[in-house]
Amino acid sequence: MDDATIDQLLIIGGVLGGLLLVAPGLIWLERRMLALWQDRYGPNRAGPFGLLVVLADTLKLFFKEDWTPPFADRFVFTIAPGIVVITVLMSFIVVPFAPGVIVSDLNIGLLFFLANSSLGAYSIILGGWASNNKYSLLGSMRGAAQMISYEVFMGLAMMGVVLLAGSFSMHTIVEAQKDMWFVIPQFLGFVIFFIAGIAETHRLPFDIPEAESELIAGFHSEYSGMKFGIFFVGEYLGIILISSVTVALYFGGWLGPDFMPPLVWFILKTFAFICFFILLRASLPRPRYDQLMEYGWKILLPLTLLNLMVTAGIVLLNKGI
């Protein structure tokens, strides 16, 4: 085995291990941050800063009864939570953490990311359908509609970046931001991408498939124990994914002054967006389902198309000169 292969395996192991460690850590982070913004302390008893609450939560999930309802479609019910984790982890293949720290710099990187996040919708649809419960099914129907719709705007919003960088490769896109982060020329694209990202991860305020207060946890009503835990992990991985892709596409990826290594820059920027995700949860109420769809199709779609056309025009103009 040559050094390159070993390096490659190390990167794969590092990314996988890192993500799976960080994802549950976000439980603690989210609860601490929410508490912070609600004038509380959050978990602060178990271990230093309450960090062991992560362990406690994981243990609890492991020891909970792993119950499959007798009326559920057993096979589908079991694999559904796995799908979301697998598809999100697959997306990380194309995320450039630092120069050289990328599992595979595919030249169709963004398309690969889009493809995988579309597949993630199956997790929700299958989970809700297999539960054989009307609330779960309602939740998964909402989820499907929401994710497919916002996929469209997300893809279109990213096209602005692709136009400017001239490549679908994430690595190339980051490199293209040496002089200026794309957030400046593509501010509108960034905003739409981020909104679509929230909808993709069905995080608050767009947690319409779960909608605790109306659908009593929606597509995962029937899930308990570690199956529920996997859904949970999938959601946090989604947050990290959207945050890191945002950083890569609009905030110059690992680029930053030299006093810190590029990986640290990337992690710091990603962390900031994760915190922003939590801030959204702490402050915004959930829109109605129809409001969400209306907002997507009637506002975001025209805006993205406009953004795309203007960007394309500018690019063409620049080329022409």
Partner: peptide, 22 residues
């Protein structure tokens, strides 16, 4: 208003905690 509420909630980071450490 959304941005405003985000900002206001963010500012709560610097408020005094209400929790009594029982």
């Amino acid at each position: 208003s959304i941005v405003r509420s985000l900002w206001l909630v963010f500012l709560h980071m610097f408020h005094k905690r209400e929790t009594v450490q029982y």
